[in-house]
Computed example of a mutant assay.
Amino acid sequence: MKSVLIIGANRGLGLGIVKFLTKLRKAEIVFATCRNVSEELANVSKEHKNLHILNLDVTDATKYEEVVSQISAATGDGGLNLLINNAGVSTKFTKINLVKAEQLLENFTVNTIAPIMLTKALLPLLIRASEANSDKPVGVERAAVVNTSSILGSIANNDQGGFYPYRCSKAALNAATKSMSVEFKDKKILATAIHPGWVRTDMGGKNAPLDVETSIRELFNTLEKLGEKDSGKFLQYDGKELPW
Rank of each mutant, 00 (worst) to 15 (best):
I7W: 10
A9D: 11
R11F: 10
R11P: 08
I17E: 05
V18I: 15
K23Y: 01
R25Y: 04
E28L: 00
V30Y: 07
A32C: 11
V37K: 15
S38A: 11
E40F: 04
A42P: 04
S45L: 00
E47H: 03
L51N: 12
L54R: 06
L56S: 04
L56I: 04
V67Y: 03
V67I: 15
Q70C: 05
D77K: 15
L80P: 07
N85T: 12
V89H: 11
V89K: 11
N97Q: 13
V99M: 14
E102P: 00
L105N: 10
N107C: 15
V110H: 06
K120T: 05
K120R: 08
A121R: 03
P124N: 02
L125K: 09
R128D: 06
A132Y: 14
A143S: 10
V145W: 11
T148C: 04
L152H: 06
S154K: 07
N158M: 07
Y164W: 13
C168H: 07
L173N: 08
L173D: 04
T177P: 01
T177R: 09
V182K: 12
V182D: 09
P196S: 14
M203K: 12
G204I: 14
G204S: 13
G204D: 14
S215N: 01
S215L: 00
S215D: 06
R217C: 07
F220E: 03
N221C: 02
K225C: 03
K229F: 05
L235Q: 05
P243I: 05
P243E: 11
